[in-house]
Design a protein around this nucleic acid. Structure first.
Lengths: 149, 149
DNA sequence: CTGATGTCCGACCGAACCAGTCCAGTTTAC
DNA sequence: GTAAACTGGACTGGTTCGGTCGGACATCAG
């Protein structure tokens, strides 16, 4: 259905929270869960995945917590989605993975891959720094080069 | 994972098949299934959904089959996806549906909806007529009318 | 007109996946 | 040493998706 998973939602929520400039640049899993009414254990798992993906840095111990591993402006939405759900693929098969039964007879691969590229482009044009701004300033910069209609 | 469903894949495959100019502008569910090695009954169901969505017209009886309900250039990829999987929503909530537990505390709605709009724009900029254009000089352009597994 | 054939149609079922939970272990601060 | 926090694995329940079945309907032969 082309919808992003709840885990990805939670990840974006948490990253945005950590991206807003405030007194502290770090927060614990429990704090985050309470702030947004999310199931604490699930959010913890999501945060762990973000650490493994290199988007967050974690600090163990009693004063531990999570913080952004790099500036918010350098973390795109695609980075987040891929850290949570694995590589972005709109179709079952890709350039590197031909594991779809109809590979030889499929005739819509190329146009669909082009579509995927455009979606990825849109998603990587948005960073979590922009999510943290309440007013959206970004003038739409869609790659129009392929639009034919 | 932001991937489109197999049913949507099959739908695009079938629509493309019906869009290529050929001796016949119509085909039966069984013909289409055999051409692409798809489970016949599942494809049949997909085709029914496309009929209900107004993208295909069906003809019953012994010489029956499916045909495009309107010119291929007027059928966009979004039309197909929505006919199969329902309204396109990348988030659980939307302007019309606030049924997400974190609605009041959610702070990433607006940017995400903007992203959705851009994805929809990309998807509705591509029609099945464009899918029917072979970009590659046909490494295996099969004479579709004669294909028998 | 009537039966046979081939097609579309709608309800049904099993399996995979995802959200969510639980628990034992490790690290750090006080 | 204890408490608070992260880490990692295994387990479960529910929803959705892929796939299947029998019935309804239109055409054609005779």
């Amino acid at each position: 259905m082309l919808r992003l998973s709840k885990k990805a939602d939670y990840a974006l929520l948490a990253l945005r929270h950590l991206a807003v400039p405030g007194p502290r640049a770090t927060a614990s899993a429990r704090e985050l869960a309470e702030s947004y009414d999310l199931p604490p254990e699930l959010l913890a798992k999501v945060l762990q995945q973000l650490v493994r993906g290199g988007l967050l840095s974690s600090q163990q111990g009693i004063r531990g917590g999570y913080g952004l591993a790099r500036p918010a402006a350098e973390i795109t939405v695609v980075d987040v989605i891929e850290a949570i759900d694995g590589p972005m693929t709109v179709t079952a098969c890709s350039e590197s993975d031909h594991s779809c039964d109809q590979y030889t007879k499929c005739n819509i691969r190329d146009p669909l891959w082009k579509l995927k590229d455009r979606i990825v482009a849109a998603l990587s044009a948005t960073t979590v720094a922009e999510l943290a701004i309440d007013l959206v300033p970004a003038p739409e910069s869609i790659p129009v080069s392929l639009v034919r209609r």
